[in-house]
């Protein structure tokens, strides 16, 4: 090989002949395990710092994603509040006393019962109404306690039956159709209605005889119910001393 032109031309720092020979000689490469270790370290350094990785991308998306999250959360909350508020608005402000069966049906078919009412009556007993005679507690528009079924609600009059106030007035019961689910439970109230209905056209004396008979048989609740109805129907009729 001839001396390089660069050297002859006065550039003593380049020698292509030596360069070519050196390239032929120098072919060593790092071992594979070093390659793997270094590349793994490089990738690990990226992966260990997720915020550093693609930081420009994350920065560009951080604001829109945050705004979207806030909007979704707000809409969800507003929708939820609107639904709750709608229930309050659609619930009737006041209900007339109703039969236990009817109350059960109402609550089953109308789940939008007012929440405030529900809470009020859950925390304290149902208030007495200015009506005579008083309907049984469950018939006084008792709001449904959370988690109670219609059958649970319909069962309430059975408990109230033990007290004198438990008797429901016959006229209110007369045209109510009890649902099948509550029929067996509310049967005592239906029986009383039938008894009063049976005596509707009888004389006051017959009423008094029946009331006395019920008392003798220990059916105090039924006797009291019939007596209350008697007083409504015949307010001027004198009562025997035993029934006063």
């Amino acid at each position: 090989m001839a001396m390089s032109d660069e050297l002859r031309d006065g550039n003593p720092t380049v020698d292509p002949g030596l360069a070519r020979l050196y390239r032929e000689a120098a072919r060593e490469q790092p071992p594979a395990h070093l390659d793997a270790a270094i590349l793994a370290a490089a990738h690990r350094d990226i992966g260990a710092r997720p915020w550093a990785m693609g930081s420009a991308w994350l920065r560009s998306w951080r604001l829109p994603v945050s705004i979207a999250a806030v909007v979704v959360l707000s809409v969800s909350l507003v929708t939820l509040m609107f639904d709750e508020g709608g229930d309050r608005l659609t619930a009737p402000p006041h209900r007339t006393p109703d039969s236990p069966a009817k109350a059960g049906v109402d609550r089953e078919s109308a789940p939008q019962a007012a929440i405030p009412e529900r809470r009020e009556t859950e925390s304290k007993p149902a208030p007495l109404r200015d009506m005579a005679p008083q309907p049984p507690p469950a018939a006084m528009d008792l709001p449904a306690p959370a988690g109670k079924s219609a059958a649970d609600l319909a069962r309430a009059p059975a408990v109230g039956e033990e007290t004198p106030r438990a008797a429901a007035p016959a006229p209110l019961m007369r045209n109510r159709a009890a649902p099948e689910a509550a029929a067996s439970v509310v049967r005592p109230a239906a029986q009383k209605s039938a008894l009063i209905r049976e005596y509707e056209n009888r004389t006051p004396e017959k009423w008094l005889e029946k009331i006395a008979e019920l008392r003798r048989d220990g059916k105090t609740a039924e006797a009291d119910e019939m007596l209350a109805e008697f007083k409504k129907r015949f307010p001027e009729h004198p009562l025997p001393a035993a029934l006063r």
Binding site: A26, E28, Q29, P30, D35, I38, L39, A42, H43, I46, G47, A52, M53, G54, S55, A56
Partner: peptide, 26 residues
């Protein structure tokens, strides 16, 4: 690119220079 999180850029950089640097050290 590697500074900004592109690990593939490092792979290419390493491929280009690993031989020369290794021989320099040898």
């Amino acid at each position: 690119c590697y500074r900004d999180g592109d690990a593939g850029a490092f792979d290419e950089l390493y491929r280009r220079h690993k031989g020369g640097l290794y021989r320099y050290l040898l």
